[in-house]
Design a protein around this nucleic acid. Structure first.
Length: 286
DNA sequence: CCCCAGTCCTGCGGGC
DNA sequence: TGCCCGCAGGACTGGG
């Protein structure tokens, strides 16, 4: 579930590791299937021990810990991964740990309940090649309106499905796709190539507004309680969701529609049929 | 180009 | 009380 706002909150939360020297790389004993760590732990250690953390960045839903030697440790939390300074929620799902010296934070932990996430050490050149190959589109917070339209405009896919395409733009997942379309007043099934210029403008604004708002509330912690920030505190944006997981409840925007749930590309989509009508009400001519 | 189903993985809650 | 099953969905893959 960590999407752009949650990963950005993680990034801000671990800023205190910058300047730290890596003095340990551990994979704590765990009876569960190990998560993907590459290269092997031995090679990983050889390359990162005694290196310093130069910066902590974010690319879409990935957290990038840059080292002082043109390499980076890339955390990809996928559904249930957390990057923490504090002790994790439990030790059964603690998957990976960096020991640090010379900074207040003595360790950085990667915790992942379902274990779908990964930790990869990459040369920065390798990472950039990966971007250049188009595996990851422009970051959803950086993308311009023109770029957004360029990336998605020709597609016949439903706009909701297209927003999840990380090759088109990076950072939006299932939860925020529904929230963004609601704020933009767009029906989730509209094909991208049918959106008008005005609708692209609304979509672009809504992407920025919803993601910024979610970051301000430190992301969304759903009913399962999994998501935590770097200090093991839950997010608060779930209290401000307009449609996500609010099926059959009154729409908080118009107060008259009822939030509907549908399935697109095997994923739940939530929307208000009144705020997000397939055919927009046209402004009455004079 | 794009859609769909299957894969990975664990925990939770519904149904019986 | 327990067990099975479906569901959650991010990234990826193979088939159509």
């Amino acid at each position: 579930m960590p999407e752009l706002p949650e990963v950005e909150t993680m990034r801000r939360g671990i800023a205190a590791i910058v300047g730290g020297r890596i003095i340990a790389v551990q994979r704590p004993p765990c009876r569960l299937k190990p998560i993907a760590v590459s290269p092997s732990l031995r090679t990983f250690r050889n390359r990162v021990l005694q290196r310093r953390v130069a910066a902590v960045e974010r690319c879409g839903k990935r957290l990038v810990v840059r080292l002082d030697d043109r390499a980076a440790i890339v955390f990809e939390p996928r559904m249930t991964g957390l990057v923490l300074l504090e002790d994790p929620p439990d030790h059964d799902h603690l998957r990976f740990r960096l020991g640090l010296a010379d900074v207040a934070a003595s360790q950085l932990s990667y915790w992942d309940r379902r274990g779908l996430g990964s930790v990869r050490l990459m040369a920065v050149a390798e990472f950039q090649t990966w971007f250049a190959a188009g595996r990851l589109g422009p970051d959803a917070l950086q993308i311009s309106r023109a770029e957004l339209r360029q990336q998605l405009g020709a597609s016949r896919r439903a706009i909701k499905v297209a927003l999840l395409d990380q090759q088109a733009l990076a950072g939006i997942g299932n939860l925020y796709a529904s929230e963004i379309l609601h704020v933009a007043g767009l029906h989730p099934t509209i094909p991208c190539n049918r959106l008008t210029g005005r609708q692209w403008q609304r979509l672009h604004t809504a992407i920025r507004d919803v993601l910024d708002e979610a970051i301000r509330y430190e992301g969304s912690t759903l009913a399962d309680g999994t998501y935590r920030n770097a200090l093991n505190h839950p997010g608060r944006y779930q209290q401000h969701h307009r449609v996500y997981a609010r099926e059959a409840q009154p729409c908080p925007s118009c107060g008259r529609g009822t939030v509907q749930r549908m399935v697109q590309a095997q994923r739940a989509t939530f929307f208000c049929p009144r705020c997000q009508a397939r055919r927009e009400r046209r402004i009455a001519p004079l």
